[in-house]
Structure formats: C-alpha cells, structure tokens
C-alpha cells in the first residue's frame, strides 16, 4: 500500500489527554496510509480511540488533549506542522468531517442555507447570491427535494436522515480529498442508514474522495469499504484489505469481532462475544493491550507487538499469529 497516489500517511500518531486522574493515551502510536479514493473502515469497540484518531487528522483536539507525537502527511505535507490559518483553509476544503449525530451537528439557530453559504463564502469567496444558488445545487445533489425553499429552513424542520444529508452536502461542498465520517449513520434508523451510506459512497466515488468510515458495525464495513483497520486501546491491531481481514483475520480480537457479526454462515449459533472489557486507557500496562482477554496469550505478550506484515496488503500486531 504505497505509491504515488497515497494521499494520507499517518506515522506514529499519539494523542493524549492530560486529565487530573492521569494521562489518557487515547491514540498511542497509530500508522496507516490511504490511497486516493480508498474507503477505509475504522472499527473497534467504544473508547478505542477511533474518533480521536479522526479528530487528530483535522487537528480538532480540544483541551486537555494534545497531539504529542507523529506525522499526518496529507497531500505531501505534515499537517501537524502547518500554521493554524493554513489548517483552517484545508478544513472544509481538502479535508472534511461528518459526525455521528445529525441532531447535533448543525447549529440550531441558523438556517441550513446560511450554514452552507458561510463555508462557500469562506473557501471560494463567492458572492452571497452565487453561494445561494450553489448551496441549492449541493442540496439537490444529496437528494433533498425542493432545495431552494429548504435553504431557508432551520435544522429542526428536517428529519434525521435529511439533516445528515445536509451535513454530507456541507462536507462534500468543496470536493475534499479526504472525508472522515465518524459513525455517520449510527443515529439513524436502518433503512435511512443504507440510503445515506449509499449516497456517501456515490459522492465519494464520483469525486475520487478517500474516506475513513468510523463505525462499530462490521456488517457495514464489509458492504462499503475497500480496507479495514481495527483499533484497540489506542492502537491499530490489524489492517488490510476487506477480503483479507474478513476472510482471514489474524488478530484474536479481530477474529472475535468477525465471529460476533450476526447472521453470518452459522445462523443458529449464539452470537459470540469477546469476554472481558477493554482496559482503562489511563496508565495502560506495558505489553499487548489485549493480553488480559486473549485466549492465546503467552509469555512473549508482555512486550508490545507492533503492526507487521502477515501477508500481502495485510498487517497485524500479534506475536502469536505473525507469519512472514
């Protein structure tokens, strides 16, 4: 996974939260890269650090968090070193983000139109009337009927699915090179989920946008992604093409995740659960973070395993499974 068309390369990214109770290592040494137009699923259980990874790419980490180490090389530049003013020009332009809950991603006291227009005015210096017609165009492109009229409506006058379409329209307004979608459909009901994701995939394909799709839902990943990265306790523990990771998972945690997808081959079997809980990220013990829950842990697991190749386009971080 390298070459000229790599648009994002993350190396040794560490984002820590310096809380009163201790240092929370929410992201602790993450490496991956993304090609133009690639859709990568980022999965892992709650608190694994998926959202913080996404926010770190846009450098939107709030106090008491800080990106303490690493490189985020996007279109040839390390985003962690560009000045804030330049970063603002990139956000919403080359880099975009969609959040989990459409109920709360739009400012409730401004019209939908003005929230689209303000970023068009900032990024493209359009005149208000040009921006207005472009905004209507964007709404039409995400399948909102009666777009001109809807510009004057407020977020609460839209249904959840429609609101998420608006959010997607804003995110895609400048044809970004990278879209980070943080559980974009979790708050929607199932039929709407499929519609919104299909829409997103279509837009992303048409514009050649790479997407990081953060989700809990392994089934969605199988349906919509080219590659899969599995995160556990602030680290990537497996990364590879969709086929490799789903057909031939190497890390015991990934194997557990795949087994817990409902409705796979063995229909009648009870849903498998991974026993135990993810460890507290404050003062994580050294060694493999999955060790306490791992069925095949051994003596060598007291050392932290790094992500290393286990096959073509497939990496895992496990001492037990690593095959050259």
């Amino acid at each position: 996974m390298s070459g000229a068309d790599v648009i994002l390369e993350i190396k040794g990214l560490k984002t820590h939260f310096f809380t009163r109770r201790g240092v929370v290592k929410a992201v602790d040494g993450v490496d991956f890269s993304l090609r133009r137009g690639e859709v990568m699923g980022l999965v892992g259980e709650s608190g694994a650090g998926k959202s913080i990874t996404g926010f770190s790419i846009l450098r939107l980490i709030d106090e008491p968090g800080r990106i303490v180490d690493g490189e985020v090389i996007f279109e040839g530049r390390d985003l962690l070193t560009v000045p804030e003013a330049e970063m603002r020009r990139l956000r919403g332009d080359r880099l975009a983000m969609v959040f989990q809950d459409p109920q709360t991603s739009l400012d409730p006291v401004f019209t939908v139109g003005s929230q689209i227009v303000e970023s068009l005015v900032f990024h493209q210096s359009l005149s208000p009337s040009q921006a207005g017609s472009r905004a209507a165009e964007l709404l039409r492109a995400v399948g909102i009927p009666d777009a001109e009229k809807r510009l004057a409506a407020y977020p609460h006058q839209f249904s959840g699915g429609m609101r998420q379409r608006v959010v997607v329209a804003i995110a895609m307004a400048q044809n970004p090179a990278l879209l980070v979608a943080d559980e974009p459909t979790t708050a929607l009901d199932v039929t709407i989920q499929a519609q919104v994701l299909t829409l997103m995939r279509r837009l992303v394909r048409n514009h050649g946008t790479a997407m990081i799709l953060i989700t809990h839902n392994m089934a969605l990943v199988g349906q919509f992604c080219d590659s899969i990265a599995v995160m556990y306790a602030g680290q990537l523990i497996e990364h590879g093409t969709k086929e490799k990771v789903i057909r031939d998972p190497q890390h015991p945690y990934t194997q557990g995740l795949i087994r817990s997808i409902p409705g796979r081959q063995e229909r009648c079997r009870r849903l498998d659960q991974i026993p135990g809980m993810m460890p507290n990220l404050i003062d994580l013990p050294p060694g493999c973070p999955f060790r306490p829950r791992c069925p095949s842990a051994g003596g060598d697991c007291v050392q932290r395993p790094l992500l290393r190749p286990v096959g073509l386009d497939h990496q895992a971080a496990c001492w037990r499974r690593n095959r050259p």
């Binding site: 020009r89 990139l90 919403g92 983000m97 959040f99 400012d107 970023s119 900032f122 990024h123 804003i170």
Partner: peptide
C-alpha cells in the same frame, strides 16, 4: 466542532 471542521475562524 462541525463549524470548526468547516474551516471557520
């Protein structure tokens, strides 16, 4: 956060 992600000052 979304407003910041749009690039607003």
């Amino acid at each position: 956060k979304f407003l910041r992600a749009k690039g607003l000052s």
